[in-house]
Amino acid sequence: MSRIDHMKYLEGMENIGSEIQDEVISAMNGYTPESFTAADVRNALDSDICTPENYMALLSPAAEPFLEEIARKAMSERMKHFGNSVYMFTPLYIANYCENQCVYCGFNCKNKIKRARLNAEEIEKEMQAISASGLQEILILTGESRKYSDVEYIGEACKIASKYFRVVGLEVYPMNSDEYKYLHECGADFVTVFQETYNSDKYEQLHLGGHKRIFPYRINAQERAVMGGMRGIGFAALLGLDDFRKDAFAAGYHAHLIQKKYPHAEIAMSCPRLRPTKADETINPRDVGERQLLQVICAYRIFLPYASITISTRECERFRNNVIKLAATKISAGVNVGIGEHSDSADKGDEQFEISDPRTVSEVYKAIEEMGLQPVMHDYIYV
């Protein structure tokens, strides 16, 4: 079966001609984690500024025996730039229709799951219920389907969200810069895109169909979002799809290059591992245990000291509590990853993945306080 070339843009996809993709892929391909030594890790820990080479060392296998020291350095950076604040938000899935065929995802268009799309009235009920919990930041998510979740539909969701929340984020399919501009005008503040894996060959094997198959269009999404006026942009690799050390390096280096090119943009990192899905319950993180995940998160913090780092409900309560003390600065709470589960309406659509931390907003808020940290619902005031 012949498939579309995953490295060529399709009609209608904006090509901004950015140099960043080549820089990221070249640096990642030149990274050999096993070549770093304990001396390289010691040099990285002793340096005041974390260079890309230091970052490589901190992600290497040689750094694992230094994990406690790495965590202490990460915690120092966290306190220096964020104090004891922990920002809280929740995701809202408004549709799970998808046109992509990603072998690891519960929303895969070939999967036999219950599909749903909330209408404007249902979206408003969900947002009212979430707002009543005290949260002031929301992340709107859809499956990647322009047919069922077109730009105007997402824009209407942003307009509704703006009535209830001070900060509105998006995790939807990649768009052109003019479409990001429209969504920003509708009330969206930031955009997060998971690259999944930065290994283009592996990417091709995992994404068998749909617009998501086009590797360069996805990797340049954050830059197009900044060009469209978005205040903040988020980056992530889905750890466990390929060599997690190289993917983590590429995600952080990608964010680093965007920050250098667009210093006004707010940078954020997410740290997802693979989770089981209803479509394939055998899917689990490959060779990414909690120690390895902590190593990645602490390396992100040291290399990108000003970046927000989110820890999601893919991870358990114990791990999330520990990591917000050390390196992460943002945590989700009251999470439901199905369609229509926040309000009194019945569950309308299946989940993308299974969560590990089902705590309510008040439970997470209390846990943060008990750790001597300060839960923060929002950090923006519009006048």
Rank of each mutant, 00 (worst) to 15 (best):
residue 3 R to P: 02
residue 3 R to N: 01
residue 4 I to Q: 05
residue 4 I to R: 03
residue 6 H to D: 09
residue 8 K to A: 11
residue 8 K to F: 06
residue 8 K to H: 07
residue 9 Y to H: 05
residue 10 L to G: 14
residue 11 E to L: 01
residue 11 E to M: 01
residue 11 E to N: 02
residue 12 G to F: 12
residue 12 G to R: 14
residue 14 E to D: 13
residue 15 N to D: 05
residue 15 N to V: 06
residue 19 E to Q: 08
residue 19 E to K: 15
residue 20 I to L: 00
residue 23 E to I: 12
residue 23 E to W: 09
residue 24 V to P: 09
residue 28 M to L: 11
residue 29 N to L: 15
residue 31 Y to K: 04
residue 32 T to W: 13
residue 32 T to A: 13
residue 32 T to V: 13
residue 35 S to L: 03
residue 36 F to E: 07
residue 37 T to S: 15
residue 39 A to Q: 11
residue 39 A to E: 14
residue 41 V to I: 06
residue 42 R to P: 02
residue 42 R to V: 01
residue 43 N to C: 12
residue 43 N to S: 06
residue 44 A to F: 09
residue 45 L to P: 05
residue 47 S to V: 09
residue 48 D to C: 04
residue 52 P to H: 00
residue 53 E to I: 15
residue 55 Y to L: 08
residue 56 M to F: 02
residue 58 L to D: 00
residue 60 S to A: 08
residue 61 P to Y: 07
residue 62 A to Y: 10
residue 62 A to Q: 11
residue 63 A to P: 09
residue 63 A to E: 05
residue 65 P to S: 03
residue 67 L to C: 03
residue 68 E to R: 10
residue 68 E to Q: 12
residue 70 I to E: 01
residue 72 R to L: 09
residue 73 K to S: 11
residue 73 K to D: 01
residue 74 A to V: 07
residue 75 M to F: 01
residue 75 M to Y: 01
residue 76 S to C: 14
residue 76 S to F: 03
residue 77 E to Y: 06
residue 78 R to A: 15
residue 80 K to F: 04
residue 81 H to S: 09
residue 87 Y to V: 09
residue 87 Y to H: 08
residue 87 Y to Q: 07
residue 87 Y to A: 07
residue 88 M to E: 00
residue 89 F to P: 01
residue 90 T to H: 07
residue 91 P to C: 03
residue 91 P to N: 08
residue 93 Y to F: 08
residue 93 Y to L: 03
residue 93 Y to P: 01
residue 93 Y to G: 02
residue 94 I to P: 02
residue 97 Y to R: 02
residue 100 N to W: 06
residue 101 Q to C: 04
residue 101 Q to Y: 13
residue 101 Q to I: 12
residue 101 Q to R: 11
residue 102 C to A: 05
residue 102 C to W: 09
residue 103 V to W: 01
residue 104 Y to R: 06
residue 104 Y to E: 05
residue 105 C to P: 07
residue 105 C to I: 08
residue 107 F to Y: 06
residue 108 N to A: 11
residue 110 K to W: 11
residue 112 K to F: 10
residue 112 K to E: 07
residue 113 I to Q: 14
residue 113 I to K: 13
residue 114 K to M: 07
residue 115 R to Q: 02
residue 116 A to K: 03
residue 118 L to R: 12
residue 118 L to P: 12
residue 120 A to S: 10
residue 123 I to Y: 13
residue 124 E to H: 05
residue 124 E to K: 14
residue 125 K to Q: 09
residue 128 Q to Y: 06
residue 128 Q to H: 10
residue 130 I to G: 11
residue 130 I to N: 09
residue 133 S to C: 01
residue 133 S to P: 02
residue 133 S to Y: 01
residue 134 G to Y: 02
residue 134 G to S: 04
residue 134 G to W: 02
residue 135 L to Y: 12
residue 137 E to S: 12
residue 137 E to T: 15
residue 138 I to V: 11
residue 138 I to M: 06
residue 139 L to H: 00
residue 141 L to V: 04
residue 141 L to R: 08
